[in-house]
């Protein structure tokens, strides 16, 4: 319903997606012009003109990056705050689940933030180089960001318009509405242990690989950091769902990761998800820079950049691990070492 746009948070979310789309589209248009006219070897006024247009593109995309991050936070926040207004939704999970596009919109939000961030990494790498060896690639890459942010805009619009705020029957009498219980399936112990084990191992591996990259930026370490970050990010979803959330709520059947965003869980979800997202992005960024090392023709510059990124990647993953472990450790200390899930938990 169009009136859904009257909700301030939803309106802002759509506006943010719109601003991102406009910024990236304008940037892509300029990038396209640059691609058509770029000549690497000549240092002429035309070249200068193009370099300055390139600076414009980068400025616009960096602006878009800030907006996508804000937009991602807004998506989650809006869903969290709207829970009381949606039939059967106890937290953001229910809100996302209440429309077919909900989780998709969350995914596109994260994807466009990630795409803009990785593009900025590529841009920063390009700026470090003495020759514009990566400039063409950089602008070509931007053309792939465009469909992503457009998809996000459409997804946000669909999500916002699909939300059903209608209250059946008059305001005060019951509508006998269906209650969608959040996620009430308890995880099988095996899957739970596997997911948390993989997430823990991969995250630790990502930290080590990042630290190794910082020490010696070799290809294997950088690619390992990227791959382990991705694995850890994927495994983190069930691990948070099945382990961190139940421990945070001290109830083996409370499996909702979105409830971690709420004040009664100390808002743990915000820093936890932020550090997971940042760690994943920086890990992938290490691999991205590695993949461009040869093309850049200046591996020393690329390595210097990797050293900088690696430090933050390791820090983000460490923070994520500490935050994820905090509720588990707290529970185990309070319970004297007894697992929340019984003897074999």
């Amino acid at each position: 319903m169009l009136t859904n746009l009257l909700h301030p948070l939803l309106l802002l979310r759509v506006v943010a997606a719109l601003v991102v789309a406009v910024l990236v589209l304008v940037g892509a248009r300029v990038a396209w012009q640059v691609l058509l006219r770029w000549q690497i070897s000549r240092a002429s006024e035309g070249q200068l003109y193009l370099e300055r247009r390139a600076e414009l593109v980068a400025t616009l995309v960096q602006g878009a990056l800030v907006m996508t991050i804000a937009g991602l936070a807004l998506t989650v926040l809006a869903a969290d705050r709207l829970a009381p207004s949606i039939r059967g939704a106890m937290c953001a999970y229910g809100v996302f689940g209440s429309t077919p596009t909900g989780f998709f919109a969350l995914g596109t939000s994260a994807a466009s933030a990630a795409a803009c961030a990785l593009w900025v990494v590529l841009h920063r790498l390009d700026l470090r180089l003495a020759t514009p060896a990566l400039t063409r690639r950089k602008f070509l890459a931007l053309l792939f960001v465009v469909p992503l942010v457009l998809t996000d805009l459409v997804a946000q619009l669909r999500f916002v318009l699909d939300l059903d705020f209608t209250v059946v029957a008059s305001c005060c009498s019951t509508s006998l509405d269906g209650t969608v219980a959040a996620v009430e399936r308890a995880a099988p112990a095996g899957a739970r242990d596997l997911a948390s084990g993989v997430a823990l191992a991969a995250a630790l591996g990502a930290v080590l690989a990042a630290l190794f990259t910082r020490w010696r930026p070799i290809a294997a370490a950088a690619y390992a950091a990227g791959a382990l970050s991705l694995v850890a990010a994927v495994a983190a979803v069930p691990a948070v769902l099945w382990v961190v959330a139940p421990y945070a709520y001290e109830s083996p059947h409370h499996l909702c990761p979105f409830c971690l965003l709420r004040a009664d869980a100390g808002g743990l979800g915000w820093p936890l998800f932020a550090s997971l997202f940042t760690g994943t992005l920086l890990g992938v960024a290490l691999a991205l820079v590695e993949s461009q090392k040869r093309a850049s023709g200046a591996s020393a510059e690329a390595a210097a950049m990797q050293r900088g990124l690696a430090r933050w990647a390791a820090a983000a993953w460490l923070l994520a691990l500490v935050l994820a472990a905090a509720p588990v450790v707290r529970y185990l200390v309070l319970s004297g070492g007894v697992s929340l899930f019984g003897a074999h938990g």
């Binding site: 009381p84 207004s85 949606i86 039939r87 705020f165 209250v167 305001c171 005060c172 009498s173 019951t174 509508s175 509405d177």
Partner: peptide
Amino acid sequence: RIVDKQLLRRTYAL
């Protein structure tokens, strides 16, 4: 005529 607390909260919020 049964008034559901959750529903009431929702109505106000909306």
